[in-house]
Design a protein around this nucleic acid. Structure first.
Lengths: 262, 262
DNA sequence: CGGGATTTTGAGCGCTCTCAATATATGTGG
DNA sequence: CCACATATATTGAGAGCGCTCAAAATCCCG
């Protein structure tokens, strides 16, 4: 599971990798609400402290394991990870990907047992967000942060629903296009413009385990998209040449504004 | 989308359909914690009031629609429903099923927009749970209820993860067996013993839209399971003859004790 | 008893898989 | 900086699982 490590630092993005806490603050701020009611100075200051001493984790390491109690909630400051489950016969299903700015290990309920495992796909820089989790218990003192945490949760839930549709009712080409668009838009949010070359450290095998396909078929599908001049790859990066055409193929809809609705 | 309506009232179950509020109370109580810290008398009394005037909804009706603001949170007291999404070309993906005792329309975050639609599969009896939702805002006054609501959310999340594995990495036979076991265990929790004939108002076409298969192939798969004497069907009901063998086929694991871990 | 929904059955097709074998990066140690 | 070892990507051939399209048989409800 070796991966390119500099993948998330390519192409001089707008603000990634400058100040780690700024990435997290922007993300949470956007999640808390696009209009008003943003994060307070106190909340912002806590976020900055949180990112003060990030930890490095090599590629292929487990952030947490299914069934274990959730020890430390955290946030990805750089690098990619994924949530997955292993079947006894070796099959593997990836639920979703964690990108810089994403939270992990934050349970809403009081029973902190992991329902999935999470594994790093590249070298990763993480911040412990135990303090944010504590603050999440006090909606009155930290309303903006609580909203942001809830929104982060809702966002992940919405992505999972899209994933179910991909797996259940889309063809291989649709699945690949849809996933690339999802990742493209999420990368756009953290400073890698849609339509330009952006980091893509996913192995074809990894994409296959996310999309319910074989690695071989992911390869052929990607080649077809290249032949149609819809995407372009270079090293561990990719460019979505025609996001509109891709969105038409994949019936992709922006996840913006969605919320949890059990 | 005609369905058998009496499906959920078959076979003299342990406590369903006697007193609707008892079903809901038992469910929430179990979710709040198997050991101690159960629901207070006040909370129980609120639940009883909630179920006082249940509403009837015919089969094939929408409980809520994707994209709309969530008006009324509710609880299913009798009958089945499902959450789903429609694709523009007519394809349909079912995310999960709502059984008696399940909640719907409860968003945790402050942005009440439905990310899915929900449709009744049978005639359904529902209780408005707006008051429970309000109480959920006050963890200090109603700790048991808040835990129950969070646990209900976590449970649904865990079921969705299982569903992703089914869709992404299991064969048709495994998917069908796994879904039948999931439903069998959920029905067991609400008074229909595992291993006996239990209501199963799902059309083969509906199962197909949940499992990412065609209706025809669900039919053939069910027939195979019958030939192998693993299941047995009668009217709108089913009996899991050999749950252990089914669990081996499907790699089914009990969802008990799981919690949300984003 | 009639009509629509659901289930069942058959035939043929095609998307995707498996199994290799080969080519190309990528990383490591000397 | 090169040679090797490993991981990843690519390509080909063949097979199989599940799909589509029909038609027939049942079931269910009024």
């Amino acid at each position: 599971m070796k991966q390119t490590e500099m993948a998330s630092g390519a192409a001089n993005p707008r603000f990634v990798d400058r100040k780690p806490h700024e990435l997290l603050w922007r993300r949470l701020s956007r999640l808390a609400g696009l209009s008003d009611a943003v994060l307070s100075d106190q909340e912002r200051s806590m976020i900055r402290q949180t990112c003060a001493a990030p930890g490095e984790v090599p590629a292929g390491a487990a952030l947490y394991v299914e069934g274990e109690p959730l020890r430390k909630p955290g946030a990805l400051l750089a690098g990619w990870a994924c949530r997955l489950r292993l079947l006894p016969d070796g099959r593997r299903q990836i639920f979703d990907f964690l990108l810089p700015g994403d939270l992990f290990g934050h349970s809403l309920g009081p029973e902190p047992f992991a329902t999935t495992s999470a594994v790093t796909l590249t070298t990763v820089s993480i911040a412990g967000t135990g303090c944010l989790w504590e603050m999440g218990r006090e909606p009155d003192r930290f309303p903006g942060l609580v909203r942001a945490l809830a929104a982060a949760h809702a966002r992940q839930q919405a992505l999972l629903l899209d994933h179910v549709v991909r797996l259940g009712r889309q063809t291989a080409q649709e699945r690949v296009a849809h996933l690339l668009l999802e990742l493209g838009h999420r990368l756009d949010e953290i400073g890698f413009p849609l339509g330009s070359f952006v980091p893509m450290p996913l192995t074809q095998e990894v994409m296959a385990d996310a999309l319910g396909l074989s690695g071989v078929h992911v390869n052929r599908t990607l080649q077809q998209l290249k032949r149609e001049r819809l995407i372009e790859t270079k090293a561990a990066s990719i460019r979505l040449i025609d996001p509109v055409a891709l969105a038409t193929i994949a019936d992709f809809r922006l996840p913006s504004g969605r919320s949890a609705a059990p």
